[in-house]
């Protein structure tokens, strides 16, 4: 998801800069990448590489920040004090991860303000998974289990991304996220082993989140145009389908263990491939949610805009205060 370009074809056409890198730079740059060199902020790099990374890292950061909201929906209603603490810590981690990522993107020359402005205007994208609602407590478990599970599958290879600041941010993120999936699975486990009503909550949530979770890995390789150049530049290490398969193979047995059923009639073990075959993903829904924001997109952006508006006068005050303090120090 994080390495997938979520823009529509039209948006891509209008946004992509007419890049005028000379061929020599592309060649020397490519040979550095091929040698396994890590690229650092001030190194020469093709403009296209810079732009791709800014888009990808900022989209990743936006996903972390917007990703706070579906879970935030349950902070005040978490069923126990322990769950409330865990959920708060987890959502806070996501804010932190957003900040690490904005920092990494800023090293490429675009300010956080500009990136956030793109999010608020709807120009920038974030993962579609966060536009699905979380009506029950079980959704908090499912998000940890499936959504964070998918995220980790995606993020671990990014720790070896060719761009140093992004790779280092991902190392930190992956280290901190190790508990996120486990806490989610633990919530679902308690439900699956609980009363019939609790088990029904877990199954209903799995039904709703299964397919959107598979969509997090992005369109099928046959439909994904940007992949090959990103693979060449080692921004991306594995194809969408490869990562999706890895996730499915890991997750299906986890569901079986809990006695929950994956809502896919075509899901079966393929002895020959040593993997699960899964049914067709509804890509029309995926693109529809990208375009219209799905059920919650409007609420998500409204919430982020409200926060930004609340921040304006706070920032202005802090700035005015700091200037007064500086003046005082100079006088003294």
């Amino acid at each position: 998801m994080y390495s997938t370009d979520l823009r529509t074809d039209q948006e891509k056409k209008s946004a992509d800069p007419q890049v005028l890198d000379d061929a020599k730079l592309w060649d020397t740059f490519q040979s550095r990448i091929d040698n396994g060199d890590v690229i650092e902020a001030k190194d020469d790099m093709p403009e296209k590489y810079r732009q791709t990374l800014i888009r990808q890292i900022s989209q990743h950061a936006h996903s972390e920040i917007v990703g706070q909201l579906p879970e935030g929906n349950w902070v005040t209603r978490a069923p126990t004090l322990k769950r409330k603490l865990i959920l708060l810590a987890k959502i806070q981690d996501e804010a932190g991860h957003g900040l690490y990522l904005y920092s990494a993107a800023e090293t490429l020359g675009r300010s956080r303000d500009d990136m956030v402005a793109d999010l608020l205007s709807g120009k920038a994208k974030y993962s579609t998974i966060f536009n699905y609602p979380t009506p029950t407590w079980a959704d908090i478990g499912t998000i940890g289990w499936l959504v964070d599970g998918a995220a980790v599958t995606n993020q671990i290879p990014l720790c070896r991304c060719s761009y140093g600041p992004y790779a280092r941010a991902m190392v930190r993120v992956c280290k901190e996220e190790s508990f996120h999936q486990r806490q989610g699975y633990e919530i679902v486990t308690v439900l699956a082993q609980g009363t019939l009503a609790q088990k029904a909550l877990a199954q209903d949530s799995l039904n709703r989140f299964w397919w959107p979770s598979l969509m997090m890995f992005g369109p099928s390789d046959s439909a994904s145009t940007h992949s090959s150049q990103n693979m060449k530049w080692k921004i991306k290490r594995h194809s969408n389908d490869e990562l999706r398969q890895r996730f499915v193979d890991a997750t299906v047995p986890q569901a079986e263990f809990l006695g929950l059923s994956i809502p896919d009639a075509d899901m079966r073990w393929n002895e020959e491939r040593g993997s699960y075959d899964h049914g067709e993903i509804n890509w029309d829904e995926f693109w529809a949610v990208i375009k219209d924001g799905g059920i919650c997109g409007k609420d998500r952006i409204r919430a982020r805009r409200a926060a930004a508006k609340d921040g304006q006068w706070v920032r202005a005050a802090a700035h005015a205060y700091a200037q007064k303090q500086e003046t005082k120090e100079r006088v003294a």
Binding site: I65, Q68, L69, E71, G72, V75, T76, K84, L88, I91, Q92, A95, G96, G98, L99, A303, A306, A307, D310, G311, V314, R315
Partner: peptide, 17 residues
């Protein structure tokens, strides 16, 4: 905790949490 995800600045959001 009501402010979690809604803080006026991301750094302040984390501090309140």
């Amino acid at each position: 905790s009501e402010m979690c995800g809604h803080g006026p600045e991301m750094e302040l959001d984390m501090a309140m949490t």
